[in-house]
């Protein structure tokens, strides 16, 4: 639970693309973090679970697979920038409302907890009904 949870998704976050769909998200932490601090992304669209290996993450004009994120400690997600989750092969209808459930777990690298000094996992969940729109090219 972070201080900015409710702002992770806006009403215009869900986009229909030729290869599936995009979800535009904001971070929920108050400072920027390297991409290596993204611990987990849980996503359901209309109750259908989207495995993280089907999600790629776009920020700073670059696209990374979910599995690459853990090593990207010099690539920052600036706090004012949106990131785009590209979801392949999840085709949606345009102009329809979908229930989107997002869980974003951020590993806070300067707060170590527990006997082994693991980074604190700040996990935020948000559920929102979003109207899908066609992505403009």
């Amino acid at each position: 639970m972070g201080p900015l949870d409710k702002f992770m998704l806006s009403d215009h976050s869900l986009l229909v693309t030729d290869s599936g769909c995009d979800l535009i998200i904001r971070s929920h932490w108050y400072r920027s973090l390297p991409l290596s601090c993204i611990g987990n992304i849980g996503l359901k669209i209309n109750e259908k679970n989207i495995p993280s290996e089907n999600i790629s993450f776009e920020v700073n004009g670059k696209i990374f697979s979910f599995n690459e994120l853990g090593n990207l400690y010099q690539e920052w997600w600036f706090i004012l920038d949106s990131a785009i989750l590209h979801i392949e092969n999840n085709f949606l209808e345009e102009g329809k409302e979908y229930k989107v459930e997002l869980e974003l777990g951020l590993l806070i690298p300067y707060v170590l907890v527990g006997p082994d000094g693991q980074p604190m996992l700040s996990s935020s969940k948000l559920s929102k009904n979003l109207l899908s729109r066609r992505k403009k090219n």
Binding site: P34, Y73, P109, P119
Partner: peptide, 12 residues
């Protein structure tokens, strides 16, 4: 400033 002790995967 922050000290990001754990920004690398699996290592401090």
């Amino acid at each position: 400033m922050f000290l990001d002790f754990k920004k690398f995967k699996g290592k401090i």
